[in-house]
Design a binder for these strands. Structure first.
Lengths: 253, 253
DNA sequence: TCAGAAACTTCCATCACATGAAACTTTAGT
DNA sequence: ACTAAAGTTTCATGTGATGGAAGTTTCTGA
């Protein structure tokens, strides 16, 4: 008789722990000491030490001379073969570069990931304003230009599901009423672009358009500008061209 | 009495296997079925299945509708916090974009990784020629523009160690004689830039310059062009400016 | 449409390997 | 030099990984 396998919901514990450890590395923690990792993951030091050591051997982490661990080149290399990098980023980069040159503004490329906008790439220069978005970062769908586009082109069901969860409010201008957002999204679908005005950051606005493929919105491109430089018509036209160019590049492969 | 722990050289087997599985994803295999993974890693199907399942749950892999696995967004997100992305790529991208616009040629950014040139980024357009280098890919040091720069600025000892291993020869023009390479590297250090002519790919050449920080060469930028368009003087000057600009951006943070 | 094969998934008895408290060593701070 | 904190090693214990085999689904071709 099997001795009452309790099934605490913790099988493959080791692997899950290892993934937790790697998950510690986020925008706020790009370099961590062993102790910090143990604290965040709540793992015993010795266990943590062993796992981190193995990850380091495999090149998934690397230890600096400051005794801090960072994400290793092996992990980075593997990640470059994610569809996100291989297809999207690679295809979009030249166009984004042109877009950046033409506008001189912050340019971002994002996809939908787990109910948030995942920034695949962004180009920021001295001329442009500082932003929160960063490559590899997640931001809410309803407060960003690219996010609203990504959400607008989702199936009805997914939209309602998103609206069912409480909507965060980073600024007073953020849209947090489900009905107001539904209206806004309908507008986005009608126009083919989204606009935000101080919905994420005070003083800046954004315009974004979808990148369509086979009738589905696979990504969104947007620019973030100072509110008083928000020339919607010009930006929409430039962005639409860029989106078409990226879509063509995606099909070209 | 411990029953003669054999220590077959396979401790933390599970984690190592998981890393092996992730390592299957390379430029030639960006999408793999479970069976393919099992074949490559030589793991039993059932074991492979379980590990892959856990990795998928953690978002490190994702299964497409074609039953193939790809690198997941979680892994990709973590990788964006590698110093490679966070510091280097992010700082260099606007400059690379400008470089690409100015030259219209293939632009690459690389660092030294495990005795090879690791391509951190590249910009390729329709106007430029196809290349083998790709973001996340590795190429030899002695046959590429960026590679020769990275090698030239290494300590003597590291250079000799590299020369001690047999030098591959992708084309007849590749430098494979240690003495010839030593001479070439000295030239690179003297001039502050490297030139290749058909040493990696027939018909194309390249120019590359170092990105210096605190007297150390932390990366290299280069362009790859058709042999008959190889205007060394112009490219060197443009590249040197770009390298200085990236170095400034790196310090700025 | 259906049979057969290939790919994938589940099961479970066995024991190898991960576990983590404790002891030990190294590093940083005063 | 001394002390505290961070990091590393050890080892008895039993949990949880293992993988062959059996079951299920999906694909292929006639």
């Amino acid at each position: 008789m099997s001795p009452a396998r309790v099934d605490t919901g913790a099988p493959t514990a080791l692997l899950e722990r290892a993934m937790d450890i790697l998950g510690c590395f986020d925008p706020k923690h790009s370099a961590l000491t062993l102790t910090q990792i143990a604290e965040i993951t709540k793992l015993p030091m010795s266990t943590c030490h062993r796992i981190v050591g193995t990850l380091e051997q495999g090149g998934f982490l690397s230890k600096g001379s400051d005794r801090k661990f960072r994400v290793g080149t092996k992990l980075w290399t593997i990640a470059q073969h994610a569809p996100l990098s291989e297809r999207l980023r690679e295809s979009a980069l030249p166009t984004l570069a042109r877009l950046y040159e033409e506008t001189g503004e912050n340019v971002t490329l994002a996809v939908l990931d787990r109910g948030q906008a995942l920034y695949v790439d962004r180009l920021v220069g001295e001329r442009s304003i500082p932003t929160i978005s960063r490559a590899g970062g997640h931001l809410p769908l309803h407060t960003t230009g690219v996010g609203k586009v990504l959400l607008a082109y989702q199936p009805e069901k997914a939209i309602e599901q998103y609206l069912a969860t409480p909507l965060t409010r980073p600024t007073p201008q953020s849209i947090t009423q489900p009905d107001a957002l539904r209206k806004d999204l309908a507008e986005v679908r009608k126009n083919g672009y989204s606009i935000t005005r101080q919905e994420m950051t005070r003083g800046s606005g954004s315009v974004a358009v979808p990148i369509m493929r086979n009738g589905r919105c696979v990504a969104a491109v947007g620019v973030i500008v100072h509110l008083n430089r928000l020339d919607v018509n010009r930006l929409v036209s430039t962005l639409t061209d860029a989106a078409a160019s990226i879509a063509a590049e995606l099909d070209g492969h």
